[in-house]
Computed example of a mutant assay.
Amino acid sequence: MRLGLDFGGTKIEGIVLAPDGAERARARVPTPRHDYAGCLVAIEDLMRRLEQEAGGTIERVGIGVPGAVDRDSGVVHGGNSTWLHGRPLQQDLANALGRPVKIANDANCFALSEAVDGAGVGAQVVFGVILGSGVGGGVVVRGQLVEGVNAIGGEWGHIPLPTPLADERPGPICSCGTPGHTEAWLSGRSLAADYARRVGIDPEDAPPAQEVVARAEGGEAAAEETILRFEDRLGRSLALIVNVLDPDVIVLGGGLSNVARFYESVPGRIAAHVFGPRFATRLVPNRHGDSSGVRGAAWL
């Protein structure tokens, strides 16, 4: 059996999968925030509990974490769980758990899950997209995660918005401090901030992205204009990915993946910026929802 762990800022979720992908056990525990040693203990306790519930031996462990992971050392950097930064989490977990551990960015785990037995199953090239509080992504080719030599494969949130319009320059400040990155336009927070600019209110007072979507569905003109701008920017940004990777399928995850209209409206906007006359890439919602990250960690 294999154990997948999804390390979040408030909770650590674990799932045990049988070799055929069937779920044997699942549980979550609170994250001991700002306590690295406490996190190691919590994960070990969680594994022992799940191993007992699953009724067998866990032989392999995978963990998805926020931020980037050095592919050689397993050291975590970036991400919002700052107490992990600079720590050899992979080796420390292997020592604590007494079995092999693989570690990857949580967006990569999402992409792997959806490629192995999710919405992208059977596809040669899958690009997994996270549209949530941030913008992330992962690349899976023939069932194998492509992390890259710098361990930043799929980090499309930190490329500039393609073909920016005059009023999109230089663009809002990204979470990394650079203006105009895709994350500064396409995260849930960014959509809400764009709506705030449209109606002339402080971004701190903006309704959440899902409320903006609901207002657009209710016929509010300012909200509809905001969603149309979002769809255009998403189309331009994903067209860049298609021109580089030419994936069979793009799978959306995160809170904004639940906006049903995107799957009808965005493909045409992607096609308008794709090189050549043919555009056959499918844009689809994820299959495993909030479970994609933890399942992908198990598949590592």
Rank of each mutant, 00 (worst) to 15 (best):
R269G: 11
I201F: 10
V259H: 08
A216G: 14
G255H: 05
S187E: 09
Y263K: 00
V251K: 00
L238H: 11
R229A: 14
R215C: 05
A239E: 10
P208T: 06
P203T: 15
N243A: 04
R215E: 05
A209T: 01
A193R: 13
A222S: 11
V244L: 12
D205R: 12
V242P: 13
A214C: 12
L228P: 08
T226W: 12
E220L: 06
N243W: 03
D194L: 12
V242W: 04
E231F: 13
G188C: 13
P203W: 09
V251F: 00
L256S: 06
L256M: 09
F230W: 11
G188L: 09
V213F: 10
I227L: 14
E211C: 11
R236D: 11
D232V: 03
V242D: 13
D194R: 15
A216N: 15
L240H: 11
D202L: 13
E204F: 12
S257W: 00
E220Q: 14
A223G: 10
N258C: 01
I241W: 01
V244M: 09
E220G: 13
E211A: 13
R261W: 00
D205T: 09
A206M: 05
E231L: 12
R215P: 07
A260R: 12
G268D: 03
V251W: 00
T226F: 10
A214R: 14
P207W: 01
V266H: 02
N258F: 06
R261A: 12
A222K: 08
A223E: 03
P207A: 10
D194C: 14
G255F: 05
D202H: 07
A206R: 05
L234I: 05
P208W: 02
V266I: 06
G188H: 05
D248N: 15
V266T: 03
S257V: 04
S187V: 08
V266Y: 04
A221R: 14
E204H: 14
E204A: 15
E231Y: 09
D246E: 08
D194P: 07
P203G: 13
V249E: 04
G254A: 08
A206E: 07
N243G: 11
A260L: 00
D246S: 12
N243Y: 02
G253F: 05
I241Y: 03
A216C: 12
G188W: 03
G253V: 04
P203H: 10
R261L: 08
T226D: 06
I250V: 11
L256F: 00
R198F: 06
L252V: 04
E264P: 00
V213W: 04
L186T: 07
R236T: 10
G218N: 14
A193D: 11
Y195A: 04
P247W: 01
S237T: 10
A196Q: 02
R189I: 08
G200K: 09
E211P: 15
G268M: 00
A223N: 09
E217G: 15
V259C: 01
Q210M: 13
L186R: 14
E264M: 02
L245S: 06
G255I: 07
